[in-house]
């Protein structure tokens, strides 16, 4: 990443000394001094995806600000690492899934560890006829079903649970995902953070203390490393009145599983 920025700086303007720590301000300053066609060619490390890929807004403004391009990427895998299943998956994804369903898409659950409650999801904006639950038991079945879903050429969000998966299988999925318009979410345990992954976006999803707001940490993304957790105070409809008022400001919980003293990009890359 840094190397690329350095190269671009050197190519475009030899007068500007290559900065040791590329910040957005420096990049913007460089672009301001360039002719328009060159400024367009400079890839700013903190900005949106310059490859023009499809992006689906996550619906959480605080999270969109941290995601490259401002939302969940289409045509690519997104890894969500969790300490245990059943923690805030729907809360995190539901705004995006709702938007996808309104565009005529479907949601595929492959190898989900639990049964979704269709009426609760309908209340959230995901009608039952748009939800397909695929009961794939073995890892081979899960990978095969996911691959078929990615090759099918229909607009869908694929949510797949892969507790044990080899990196080459993920690479294969990532290659298939380039032909798939919608987002692909791969749910894996937190131990997977130590393994390399081909997914361009990796998140750690945890919960804060009661009333349990979501805490999302971006482990890997296209752009500079980001180690601070994003707190998303968002709950299912009808639950807000029942919860105790959160004691603001919420301190992000320090997770013991992933070392924070290293840049996240090194962990995820």
């Amino acid at each position: 990443m840094m190397l690329y920025i350095h190269t671009v700086f050197e190519m475009t303007s030899p007068l500007v000394p290559p900065p040791r720590s590329a910040s957005t301000g420096a990049a913007a300053a460089v672009c301001a001094g360039l002719p328009a066609h060159l400024a367009q060619a400079v890839w700013s490390g903190h900005g949106g995806r310059s490859d023009g890929g499809l992006v689906l807004s996550s619906g959480h403004a605080a999270l969109d600000a941290e995601l490259p391009g401002g939302g969940w990427p289409g045509q690519a895998l997104t890894e969500v690492l969790q300490a245990q299943v059943g923690m805030a998956e729907w809360r995190l994804l539901m705004p995006a899934l709702r938007a996808l369903v309104q565009r005529g898409g479907h949601v595929l659950l492959i190898g989900a560890p639990l049964r979704p409650q269709a009426s609760a999801l309908w209340r959230e904006g995901l009608p039952p006829e748009r939800l397909v639950y695929v009961e794939a038991r073995t890892p081979t079945e899960r990978l095969w079903a996911t691959e078929q879903a990615l090759k099918a050429g229909c607009l869908s969000a694929v949510l797949v649970w892969l507790p044990n998966v080899r990196p080459e299988a993920l690479r294969r999925l990532q290659a298939c995902a380039t032909h798939h318009a919608g987002p692909v979410f791969v749910f894996r345990p937190v131990q997977a953070a130590l393994e390399p992954s081909p997914a361009p976006l990796r998140l750690h999803l945890g919960l804060g203390p009661c009333p349990h707001p979501m805490q999302v940490r971006v482990l890997k993304r296209r752009g500079p490393a980001h180690a601070q957790a994003v707190v998303l105070p968002h709950w299912p409809a009808g639950l807000g009145a029942l919860l105790p008022s959160p004691s603001l400001p919420l301190a992000p919980e320090v997770d013991r599983h992933v070392a924070l003293d290293r840049p996240a990009a090194h962990i995820g890359a």
Binding site: P116, A118, Y133, V134, E135, Q148
Partner: peptide
């Protein structure tokens, strides 16, 4: 396209394992 996908999944996994809910 979705129907073709479901059809493929169903043949391999069995119809009882590719499901949709009814409230």
């Amino acid at each position: 396209a979705l129907l073709r996908l479901i059809e493929r999944l169903e043949i391999r996994l069995g119809p009882e394992r590719v499901q949709q809910a009814e409230c």
